[in-house]
């Protein structure tokens, strides 16, 4: 308020009027720039949505159309029933959901558990353990993929979904976030109080610490879920069975150079179906997620 009134008072002098005009111009340019970038971010998804509403015939004709048509449900229906391609929506959704849910739940619980173990107790290897986890955080996942793939083949573990789920128990980055959260928000007196009140150590973790860590768990759950949901590299190596493929593998298989023979409406719908769960989650939790991005970045 104070700023504004000052602004009006000083409008009289030509100098400040100049400054004001300059500010307005700059502001307008900024908004134009922002709107342009927003357009860029959304335009392709908008096109995707439009194309899911158009029939194969309309799509095969080509051309840029910006108005939705009426074949959305037809495409959806066709995708689930008659679409003969690499994309099996029911199986893909199911497998993706199993892997993403399973691995993000394990990541959250065990990262919190490990972080709590290092934070709450004093033991000889405490510091060494933390430094080790920090160090392995930077190792690219590809380094293990060759050996992992080989072992999976050797022991007949290909096409087992649990093989994608179990390793997420050891998630260094999530661990790091959790231990920072513990350090900044939970008081050790709380743990001691719980001990005095009669809990054993696991009870203290499950009943006192986990509920307090809910915000951190939620953020990490979302990131881990999205990461797993979108992951192509490891699943594509391990899952070759038709009934075990996840959505990204199916999407990868869809890509082709000749589209003429395919039901394009269904393919657009398949893409739409793969991204829509995450978009819906994002619409509801965006504020939360963006906070998580910043919090996760304040490393070191």
């Amino acid at each position: 308020m104070a700023d504004k009134s000052k602004l009006y008072e000083s409008v009289d002098s030509s100098e400040s009027r100049k400054a004001l005009i300059k500010l307005i111009v700059v502001k307008t340019l900024c908004y134009l720039f922002l709107i342009f970038l927003t357009f860029m971010s959304f335009f392709f998804f908008y096109l995707l949505f439009i194309n899911t509403t158009r029939s194969n015939n309309q799509l095969q004709d080509g051309g840029l159309v910006l108005i939705p048509s009426d074949s959305f449900f037809e495409n959806l229906h066709n995708l689930f029933t008659s679409f003969r391609g690499e994309f099996n929506a029911v199986i893909g959704l199911k497998n993706s959901l199993i892997v993403a849910l399973g691995s993000s739940l394990l990541t959250c619980y065990f990262s919190a558990l490990t972080a709590y173990g290092i934070w709450a107790y004093d033991f000889k290897l405490k510091k060494a353990a933390e430094i080790f986890i920090l160090a392995i955080m930077m190792i690219p996942s590809q380094l293990s993929s060759v050996g992992f793939y080989q072992i999976a083949i050797k022991y007949g573990f290909r096409n087992k979904l649990w093989l994608l789920i179990i390793p997420s128990i050891a998630a260094p980055a999530t661990f790091f976030y959790m231990i920072q959260y513990l350090r900044s928000t939970v008081s050790k007196e709380l743990i001691e109080a719980s001990r005095m009140d009669g809990s054993n150590e696991f009870m203290t973790f499950n009943r006192i610490v986990l509920p307090i860590m809910k915000p951190a768990l939620a953020v990490q759950f979302i990131f881990s879920f999205v990461g797993s949901w979108n992951n192509l590299y490891m699943p594509s190596l391990l899952l070759s069975n038709k009934d075990k493929k996840t959505l990204p593998i199916m999407i990868n298989a869809l890509s082709s150079t000749s589209w003429g023979s395919k039901d394009l409406g269904c393919i657009y719908m398949a893409i739409f179906l793969s991204i829509i769960p995450v978009v819906i989650v994002y619409i509801f939790l965006s504020r939360f997620i963006i906070k998580g991005v910043t919090a996760g970045s304040v490393k070191g």
């Binding site: 109080a193 005095m196 307090i212 809910k214």
Partner: peptide, 12 residues
């Protein structure tokens, strides 16, 4: 039983 300086009430 013990009463702590920071009260240590379970916030949830």
């Amino acid at each position: 039983a013990m009463v702590f300086q920071s009260y240590a009430l379970y916030p949830h």
